[in-house]
Design a protein around this nucleic acid. Structure first.
Length: 695
RNA sequence: GCCGAGGUAGCCUAGCUGGUUGGGGCGCCUGACUCAUAAUCAGGAGGUCGGGGGUUCGAAUCCCCCCCUCGGCACCA
């Protein structure tokens, strides 16, 4: 690393449409820890982030809540600022993308891309609602996925195959607002020539630093295929595209926040252009794995096209699991920062320690309250907290003031810890960083134990003082070295040791001075089983409720609607969130009996079933539908063995338009219940003949 | 199926340019100590290093095959 350069650290922007949870923190806390260490080591750092305020989900949600988009954004912007402050994630600037300065910067960059010929207009067919008299953006459209036939929304096949849909791709579009049938109408939109950046990206990704999880994905995508990127939308809410009644796609303007927020952070201090135009800084993005594509493909291409500086590193954090299960807001496997953690009154440093120390930054982090309690009680408190307190307390009680006499061995141990921390930071290994100071703490406990100052105080006061001063030196070094991870606690504790850790640099860890000790307070409060049981119960109740909801129990519905409203919001900018099935959102439009009669539904008998080669999900079935035996392809291979299917009676939609999948023709569709994506086959209550009509 | 990342004691991990008995930490067992938040210190038990072949005097480390987990792509009429 080039030490002379200023470093700009950014975090993926939280989407101002939902509350902060443990998944967000998985990225923000390590980034903050990294920044605090850099500063400790004397580097000049700028740390920015902000709310991502645009995009259809915010508009849709605001409308649902009877708010203006800005009002909804205000709520979550405040929320994020508050929780970040409380957990000591300290940005130099936390902006918002609906601010004027950000619009200005975005328009300037878009204009540069236009001037440089990287943006071109193209007529595309878009869903238009004749009733509402407007073009329908992404999420205002509902229709059928052209790839899998599932109900999908305008920009993504969210219920089915999960594909990203380009504007105009969706079939049978309907207006989500008034429910009427939408038509396709031509409209001019703008595209970014991503395809022209393929060679640049291949070269760039070879030089880009960061975690390999991010870099590997990105390389894979670039080598596959790049498509030009539609960067305008029909919305009111967003950054206006120059000269048109359109806004730029939210993923164009969101990363530009890194630039506009840097401008604000630099005000009165330095010229932001040195960073973003003259490459005089090292730019490091901390993100969640789900937005690697945007940061390693779209973003550098945009910057290159607009002749801005390029990021030097992309650091992607691994996934979060809760109680060993995939993180899921809808299923209750989530820890909300405000409602769960902060409300519990627990020391925020505990959570920071857990997030940093559980595992390597790139790996999956599992959160469970049980492990949480173990780590806090047995590691943080028993080792670090106990050492700090026993030493300081002993020193205060027996000496108060101590001379500067320190065992060389302790200084060596401190140096070792510093070296380990430096090395670990270079590799984005924050667990190794925190392990290094925990190891130093062990050394301290060991030293104290072996020196037996409680005996020495009676026999040899002078020798005792040296042993205690040595331990105090270790304690001081520990508060300094652990401050980036445990800022709240160490800031408080350092004053008992007679200094202010916030004003200390790394050199103070080794500087030998006399001590003046104040009566210390216990640094960390112990976690008791009752408290943990309480927190676990909250979580388990939430999970149980989510399960009930999934099973569609009546009586819960009212409540469910409310809770879903709060938690189903999309996140963007930091963590991967699983595609959540939202059955209650399907809100199918009514059809007439006549329309129903158009469906040729029958009971069919599966006479043959086999896997389709090279496919993970597809089975080729031969189904007796009464008058003939049909070949049907069904996406159930992950859940059903072919052998187990033969002879089974299943409902089948016979007059569905045939299609070919992986080269195999499918004439009909087997009906199944969908439990979170898992198909559950249905069988008639009594044995019936193949071909029996369903009504 | 293809690509990527992994599979090391109950849990988190180091080691992986091959070389003495595979290191830590948490938990567990025994002992010591009492300054300290039943914290600490010492000692100990616990591992077929995913499985099987191969290269080598010698492999957790290299090669081949297979299995499993996670993610990306293809695919869920």
């Amino acid at each position: 690393m080039d030490k002379a350069k200023i470093k700009l650290i950014t975090c993926g922007l939280p989407y101002a449409n939902g509350k902060a949870h443990i998944g967000h923190l998985r990225t923000y806390v390590p980034a903050d820890v990294y920044v605090k260490y850099l500063r400790l080591f004397g580097e000049e750092v700028i740390f920015v982030c902000g709310s991502d305020c645009h995009g259809t989900p915010i508009v849709v949600n605001a409308e649902k809540e009877g708010l203006k988009p800005k009002e909804l954004v205000d709520i979550y912007h405040e929320h994020f600022q508050k929780v970040f402050r409380e957990i000591n994630v300290e940005f130099d600037y936390f902006g918002r993308t609906d601010a004027e300065y950000h619009h200005k910067r975005t328009q300037e960059i878009v204009q540069r891309l236009l001037d440089n010929g990287y943006i071109y207009p193209k007529e595309i067919e878009l869903a238009y609602c004749p009733n509402c008299n407007r073009f329908l953006p992404d999420r205002y459209v509902e229709g059928v996925c052209p790839y899998c036939g599932a109900i999908a929304r305008g920009d993504e096949c969210d219920q089915g195959c999960g594909r990203h849909l380009e504007p105009g791709e969706i079939l049978e579009p309907r207006c989500k607002i008034c429910g009427s049938k939408a038509i396709y109408r031509k409209q001019k939109h703008y595209f970014f020539k991503l395809t022209e950046f393929k060679d640049f990206l291949l070269d760039y990704l070879g030089k880009l630093k960061g975690t390999e999880n991010a870099l590997n994905y990105a390389k894979q995508w670039v080598t596959m295929e790049l498509k030009d990127w539609c960067i305008t939308r029909n919305l009111e809410w967003g950054v206006k595209f120059p000269g048109e009644d359109l806004v730029v796609y939210v993923w164009v303007d969101a990363p530009i926040g890194y630039i506009s927020f840097t401008e604000k952070a630099c005000e009165g201090k330095m010229d932001w252009k040195d960073i973003w135009l003259k490459s005089k800084a090292e730019i490091i993005h901390f993100i969640g794995l789900d937005i690697v594509y945007h940061h390693c493909i779209f973003w550098p291409a945009m910057l290159k096209g607009a002749e801005y500086s390029l990021p030097n590193a992309v650091v992607a954090s691994g996934m979060v699991k809760v109680e060993g299960k995939t993180f899921s807001k809808s299923r209750g496997y989530v820890v909300w920062l405000e409602d769960d953690y902060l409300a519990s009154g627990l020391n925020t440093d505990f959570l920071r320690y857990y997030l940093v120390n559980y595992t390597s930054h790139q790996k999956d982090l599992n959160f469970s309250w049980e492990v949480f309690a173990d780590k806090i009680n047995n590691e943080l408190i028993a080792n670090l907290g106990n050492f700090l307190y026993r030493v300081t307390h002993f020193a205060w009680k027996n000496f108060g003031k101590l001379d500067a006499k320190v065992d060389e061995a302790a200084l060596e141990a401190i140096e070792t810890a510093v070296d380990k921390i430096k090395k670990a930071l270079e590799n984005w290994e924050f667990k190794a960083v925190s392990d290094a100071f925990m190891e130093l703490s062990s050394f301290g406990n060991n030293y104290f134990q072996n020196a037996k100052p409680w005996d020495l105080i009676k026999s040899n006061r002078e020798e005792c003082e040296k042993a205690v001063a040595t331990c105090l030196q270790l304690a001081k070094a520990l508060t300094i070295l652990s401050y980036p991870v445990l800022p709240k606690t160490m800031k408080e504790f350092s004053k008992f040791l007679g200094f202010d850790v916030k004003k200390s640099g790394i050199e103070d860890a080794l500087k030998v001075e006399g001590f003046e000790i104040e009566k210390p307070k216990i640094p960390f409060a112990k976690l008791f089983p009752e408290k943990i049981a309480e927190l676990e119960q909250t979580m388990h109740e939430r999970i149980a409720m989510a399960e009930k909801r999934e099973l569609g129990e009546k009586g819960e519905l009212e409540e469910v609607k409310v809770s879903v409203k709060v938690s189903e919001v999309e996140t963007r900018g930091k963590v991967k969130v699983e595609e959540e099935n939202k059955p209650e959102e399907i809100d199918m439009r009514e059809i007439t009996f006549e329309e129903f009669k158009n469906l040729d539904l029958r009971i069919g008998k599966i006479v043959k079933a086999e896997k389709i080669e090279k496919s993970k999900k597809l089975l080729r079935l031969e189904v007796d539908v009464g008058d003939e035996v049909r070949q049907v392809v069904a996406g159930i291979a992950e859940y059903y063995e072919p052998e187990a299917l033969v002879g089974k009676l299943v409902p089948i939609l016979v007059n569905l338009k045939p299609a070919k999948l992986m080269g195999v023709e499918s004439r009909g569709m087997i009906l199944a219940a969908d439990r979170n994506g898992e198909p559950i086959l249905l069988h008639p209550d009594k044995e019936v003949e193949p071909g029996t009509r369903i009504r």
